[in-house]
Simulated scan of single mutants.
Amino acid sequence: MSTATLPEGDWIRGITIRQPWATCILATKRVENRPAAWPWRGWLLLHSGKRLDRPALRDPLVATAIRGRELHLGAVIGAALLVDCHPDRGPEHCTSAWAQRGVHHLILHDVRELPLPVPATGALSAWKPTQHLVDQVLQQLPDLQR
């Protein structure tokens, strides 16, 4: 993984994703589906929501991605670089098996898993983490520092 150079000031947000989808991002999923566009680009803390999407566990793509992994709830479990957000324009434009039709696709790169999840509260839209939470993440992922 590359070492990132981060801008001064306001450089990171959080995104809350229900399980098992959050763990799928840590494994192989690089497209997060959202109902609306996101103007934010940059680093995101990957926060697993407190609720589990039980029907998703039966999806073969999901089951393969999460096999052998713990599904942490209510915690920051990683970080990723959000590089793009575009509306669905069909499978010829976004070829990921994870891309749903009729929504916006958040394109993630440089996904990094935390060795130890950090308990936290998130929000449905992009949220600004506290400095304390960012400091806890940086203890485990020091190469995210400026």
Rank of each mutant, 00 (worst) to 15 (best):
D10M: 15
W38V: 02
W21H: 15
N33I: 14
I17M: 02
W21Q: 04
A56E: 14
L26E: 05
K50A: 15
T16L: 10
I12V: 13
E32Q: 05
W43Y: 09
T5E: 10
R13Y: 13
E32M: 02
L46T: 01
T23M: 02
G68S: 08
I25H: 01
S48D: 03
T23Y: 03
A36P: 10
Q19L: 06
K50G: 10
A22E: 08
I17Y: 11
R41I: 12
G9T: 05
R54I: 00
A36F: 09
A56R: 01
G9H: 13
E8N: 15
R18K: 12
G68L: 11
G14V: 13
W43Q: 10
A37I: 09
A65T: 06
L44Q: 07
P39H: 08
N33V: 13
A56V: 13
V31G: 06
E32C: 05
R58M: 04
P7V: 05
I17V: 05
V62M: 04
W11F: 15
P60M: 12
P60V: 06
R67L: 04
A63T: 08
L52R: 12
G49R: 03
D59A: 02
D53M: 01
A22H: 09
W21R: 11
L57D: 00
K29F: 02
I66S: 06
G9V: 02
C24S: 08
T28A: 12
I15K: 06
R58Q: 12
R13K: 14
L44H: 07
L46D: 02
R34F: 06
R54H: 04
P20I: 10
T64E: 14
R34V: 07
P39D: 06
I25E: 01
A37S: 08
G9C: 06
T23P: 04
P60K: 03
K29E: 14
L45S: 14
I66D: 01
L26W: 00
I15Y: 04
D59Y: 01
G42E: 13
L44R: 03
I66G: 03
I17R: 00
I12Q: 10
A22Y: 01
I15F: 14
I17K: 00
W21T: 08
A27D: 11
H47K: 15
G68C: 14
G9Q: 04
L6G: 07
I12P: 00
I66V: 02
L52A: 04
P7C: 09
G14R: 00
R58I: 00
I12H: 08
L6I: 14
P55T: 10
E8A: 15
P39K: 00
L6Q: 12
T28K: 04
W38A: 03
A56N: 08
L46F: 05
V31P: 00
L46N: 04
R58F: 09
P7I: 09
R51N: 15
W43D: 11
Q19M: 10
L6R: 12
W40N: 04
P60Q: 01
N33C: 08
E8Q: 15
